[in-house]
């Protein structure tokens, strides 16, 4: 069992995860963000590997990626940063990014390094499911990494069941048909979608992302799902705040959470 699976064993509801782009706002921001998140009681983190052409992302994550690449961030540097934190942090980490940089790094080499750096799982949104099953699944298993797949309101029940079958940590519930950071609030369609998911009795926890930015969206996600992921809103705070600790604090305020 990896750290992420362990977390879901022990905490079943109201989970909160943050996404940030590695190398943003500064090349060496990674350690500070991880430490601040852990201290603030965030349940787990998604570390975004910046990519030049992030198709599924809105302007906030695009800009953070462009800046991170300009800052010199690479997968190699990210692994070095994470290695130095190993043993010093306990917050579960996932790596999230597009497939091409992973292919160029070398798929197995990447997975081996990710696991050695303490990552619990990978989110590669443009990895096709059939290719995962044929070429990647054994590698994920070998390195004890959890694959995380996305579902949207347009994903068929049949496909959701297949994804549930292949997953062993959680399912990433994209709240609506949209790029990241797009929604203002969750309407009736989202609520119905959440209800539909609930009624399917899936074995994996459901964590909602895309559009979590205030108390209302967080509470709606928590009421209907097992947890929420906050990305674009966190990146905005990181850009504005003097340090990561303050950014997490400001975000928690926006989300209507207690700040110590």
């Amino acid at each position: 069992m990896n750290a992420l699976q362990n977390l879901f064993q022990n905490k079943k509801q109201n989970l909160l995860s943050l996404f940030f782009t590695a190398g943003y706002p500064q090349l060496d921001s990674t350690a500070g963000i991880i430490a601040a998140s852990q201290k603030a009681g965030i349940d787990f983190l998604e570390v975004g590997m910046p990519y030049s052409d992030p198709l599924a992302d809105g302007p906030v994550i695009q800009q953070s990626s462009t800046l991170a690449i300009a800052n010199g961030m690479t997968i190699e540097i990210l692994f070095r940063q994470l290695e130095t934190l190993k043993g010093k942090t306990s917050i579960p980490l996932l790596l999230m990014g597009y497939l091409n940089p992973v292919l160029q790094y070398g798929t197995e080499r990447f997975m081996g390094k990710a696991a050695a750096c303490g990552a619990s799982g990978l989110i590669l949104p443009d990895l096709p499911i059939h290719e995962y099953r044929e070429e990647y699944q054994t590698l994920f298993e070998k390195y004890n990494l959890s694959p995380v797949f996305l579902i949207t309101p347009h994903t068929s029940d049949e496909r959701i069941k297949l994804i549930d079958e292949l997953s062993n940590a959680f399912i990433y519930v994209v709240s609506s048909a949209a790029t990241t950071g797009k929604q203002q609030d969750f309407g009736l369609t989202q609520q119905e979608y959440f209800q539909r998911l609930k009624s399917m009795n899936l074995k994996n926890p459901l964590i909602g992302g895309f559009g979590i930015h205030n108390r209302q969206t967080l509470q709606q996600a928590w009421q209907n799902l097992d947890g929420a992921i906050c990305g674009s809103a966190f990146l905005k705070k990181l850009a504005e705040a003097p340090d990561a600790r303050k950014a997490v604090e400001e975000l928690k305020k926006d989300l209507g959470l207690m700040v110590e």
Binding site: Y51, D53, I69, Y98, L99, N100, P101, L103, Q104
Partner: peptide, 21 residues
């Protein structure tokens, strides 16, 4: 170019060693 993924397909593309287009 070298093999990689751009706009949803595997093909040859001009990219950095890190896989940035």
């Amino acid at each position: 170019g070298t093999p990689g993924i751009i706009h949803g397909c595997k093909t040859l593309l001009m990219q950095t060693p890190d896989g940035q287009v």
